[in-house]
Structure formats: C-alpha cells, structure tokens
C-alpha cells in the first residue's frame, strides 16, 4: 500500500513570515539591525563635532551631495530616511502585534510574582516606546528645527550647540540614550538568536558584542551633549 502523500499548497513566503510569531520576530530582528547599522554611522558622524564647525558642517553638507552625479542632491539622504522610516514602522508594528499576543497568551498573572529577567529584557517594550517618542522629538529638534527657536537650516554645528544649552534638552537626550543602550543590549543578542546565528559556543561572543555596541553607542551619543554642557564644544 502506498503511503498517503500530502500535496497541500503552502502560503507564499511573505504570508508565512507575517502570519508566524517566528516570522514577525525575524522582521523585528532585521529592521532592528538596519536601525543599529544606521546608529553606528550616525554616532560616528556626530563625533566630528569635536573637530570644529568646519568639519561638522562640511560633513553634513557631504551627506547631501554624496552619490552625485549618479544621485541627485539629497537623494542618498532621502533613500536612507525612507529605509529608516520603513524599519521603524515595521519594528513598531510587529512589536505591538507580538506584545498583544503575548499578553493574551498569559491572561492570568501568578499570585506569587518574581522578577528575574534582566532590567534590559523587562524594559524592551516601554523602552521602545520611549525611543519612538524620542525619535519624533529629535527630528523636530535638530532636523526640522520646529521646536527650537533660532534654528538655522544648514548650520548644524550652531544648532546642536544651541539645542544642548538647554539643560532639560540634555536630560531628554541622555535619558533616551541610556534607554537606547539597554534596548540594544538585549535587542542585538535577541536578533542573533531570532536569525539563528547564535549557538552554545557563540553565545558569549554575541553577549559581549551586544554589551560593547550598547556601551559604545551610548557613550558616543552622550559625549556630544556632555561636551556642550562642559563648554568643550561651543
């Protein structure tokens, strides 16, 4: 007797990914890594502020002309912006959907509660919300200048110095960057597991790399407001 054979038609790749919790986590991992790569470049660019207004403003101008004449003026920048916006949306939508699902999967809480996971792990969701709000503030503050009186387009050095002269703005940025460090510490390592890159032997490597990325990015970003506050950059 022949064995029963199944000839079921499977859904398309995007459908399979989007319908699965594992697939949605993959979307989170990939979009998260894209944002992380952007942040590394962003932090590197920020540090040019220590070489003076000429270097910093020149770098900002180069970001607009990079790729010319193949790309038009500011096209490269807009391509990056579109990709980042898509990554943020994909990351947030999947996080929201998975979180709703996770809450429904544990409808009754334990009477005897214990918090054992690390602070970084427990704060991923609200930390992510804080970072999302920060991105909006950051764009209004230093890209469009909507919330910054005296913002001069095309003069990033002066704008950064003016922005960080407000102590409360420094607080916003420093708190957000600490949240970013925590988010990356758990997020980078998690992404490695979600994408199947981790293993018992590589676990320590990925944990170290996550800690290192979190530390370097946080310190690198916080250096700018601290430098303005202390008068190192003025």
């Amino acid at each position: 007797m022949a064995l029963a054979t199944r000839t079921d038609k499977r859904p398309s790749l995007p459908r399979t990914v989007w319908d699965s919790t594992v697939g949605k986590k993959t979307v989170m991992a990939v979009s998260g890594l894209l944002m992380l790569a952007y942040l590394v470049a962003h932090m590197y660019g920020n540090l040019k502020i220590f070489f003076g207004p000429g270097t910093f403003d020149g770098y900002a101008h180069w970001l607009r002309v990079v790729g010319e004449p193949f790309l038009h003026y500011t096209w490269a920048l807009w391509i990056i912006r579109v990709v980042m916006a898509a990554a943020v949306v994909a990351h947030a939508v999947t996080a929201y959907q998975l979180s709703r699902r996770d809450r429904a999967a544990r409808p009754t809480k334990y009477v005897h509660r214990k918090a054992r996971t690390s602070y970084a792990t427990r704060t991923m969701r609200w930390g992510g919300v804080i970072l999302g709000l920060f991105i909006v503030w950051h764009i209004l503050d230093l890209t469009t200048g909507t919330v910054q009186p005296g913002f001069v387009p095309g003069h990033p050095y002066a704008n950064v110095v003016a922005a960080f002269h407000e102590w409360w703005n420094d607080v916003i940025y420093i708190v957000a960057m600490l949240a970013l460090g925590l988010h990356i510490q758990h997020g980078f390592w998690s992404a490695a597991q979600t994408l199947g890159a981790g293993s018992k032997t590589r676990d320590r490597t990925f944990k170290t790399l996550a800690n290192l990325l979190a530390l370097v990015l946080t310190l690198g970003f916080v250096a700018v407001p601290v430098a303005v506050m202390t008068g190192l950059v003025s």
């Binding site: 919790t21 594992v22 949605k24 986590k25 998975l98 699902r101 996770d102 809450r103 429904a104 999967a105 544990r106 054992r116 996971t117 792990t121 991923m124 758990h186 390592w189 998690s190 597991q193 979600t194």
Partner: peptide
C-alpha cells in the same frame, strides 16, 4: 494554539 511569542527572556 494561542501560545505567545519568544522575547528571549530565558525563563
């Protein structure tokens, strides 16, 4: 079956 997703909490 309605199980949640993994957040790598490790519990």
């Amino acid at each position: 079956e309605g199980f949640g997703g993994c957040t790598l909490a490790g519990e």
